[in-house]
Design a protein around this nucleic acid. Structure first.
Length: 249
DNA sequence: TCATTAATCGCAC
DNA sequence: GTGCGATTAATGA
């Protein structure tokens, strides 16, 4: 039985391909279920991609060819709206899944994805994944948890966009990014432009700059070039405490 | 170094 | 609060 007949890109494994057995990424859904998946040949049929910084690897509207797992690096997922304004749906860290919305009924991606830094992705074809989901309940359950979580976060984001002031959204975002990506030397480990901050919070870059400089004056954050650092996490939390929820992990 | 791009600020609406 | 445009800082060829 040949699963992939005419998918030329999937047929030759790239030399840089790393087997899941030796992968060090503990957060990866595949890696976590490797015991139950080991008898399946599917983990060997993945494709490993090297993505350069700023390179787009999922195009909006393009036909779905598979799901991507971030082995290494950071990625932004976005959706373009009216007159080319892009809205960043989420940021994906190592071990996360991208393109899962195009899975199932959809035949084309509803989102685009760009690497924020040099990244390594593992790509599984839609067909392979479907087969595995059907025969492996344990893995399917894990996937379902992931989907439920994504939906929850998505709903939380709707609330934040509709009910919070811009300043609160910025504070919320900074806390979220800080928790998710961590920081070194007091600066958040995510090289984002002001525009990208704006695209995530649903405002303009000017607005972000204004909020940032206000927060700088109040000694809540510091900014050096592109790098942003949080000085007072508790004060930022107080900003959004009226809504008593935080966009979690 | 110069050229291109991003960040910042002021101003009008 | 929002968006345009000029100025300045930062980055890349």
């Amino acid at each position: 039985m040949t699963l992939n007949t005419s998918r030329s890109t999937f047929q030759n494994k790239t030399p840089s391909s790393v087997s899941c057995e030796v992968c060090m990424n503990k957060t990866c859904l595949i890696k976590r279920n490797l015991q139950t998946l080991s008898n399946s040949k599917f983990v060997n049929q993945k494709r490993t991609l090297q993505i350069k910084k700023g390179q787009q690897f999922i195009i909006e509207g393009a036909p779905v060819n598979g799901l991507y797992f971030v082995k290494q690096g950071k990625v932004k997922v976005f959706r373009t709206g009216i007159n080319g304004k892009e809205h960043i749906v989420r940021f994906a860290n190592e071990g996360e899944i991208i393109g899962h919305r195009g899975f199932g009924t959809g035949d084309s991606y509803s989102i685009g994805a760009i690497a924020l830094e040099h990244s390594v992705l593992c790509c599984f074809s839609k067909q392979m994944l479907q087969d595995v989901l059907l025969e492996n309940p344990r893995f399917s359950y894990d996937m379902m948890l992931f989907y439920a979580n994504e939906l929850n976060k998505s709903e939380a984001k709707v609330k934040s966009l509709s009910q919070m002031m811009v300043r609160e959204r910025v504070a919320d975002m900074l806390l979220y990014i800080n928790r998710k990506f961590g920081s070194t030397n007091g600066f958040i480990n995510l090289p984002l432009s002001r525009k990208e901050y704006a695209d995530y919070t649903g405002t303009s870059d000017e607005q972000i700059i204004r909020i940032f400089s206000a927060l700088k004056k109040e000694k809540l954050i510091i900014a050096r070039g592109k790098k942003i650092g949080i000085l007072n996490i508790d004060a930022l939390k107080k900003e959004i405490s009226a809504h008593n929820f935080f966009l979690d992990s």
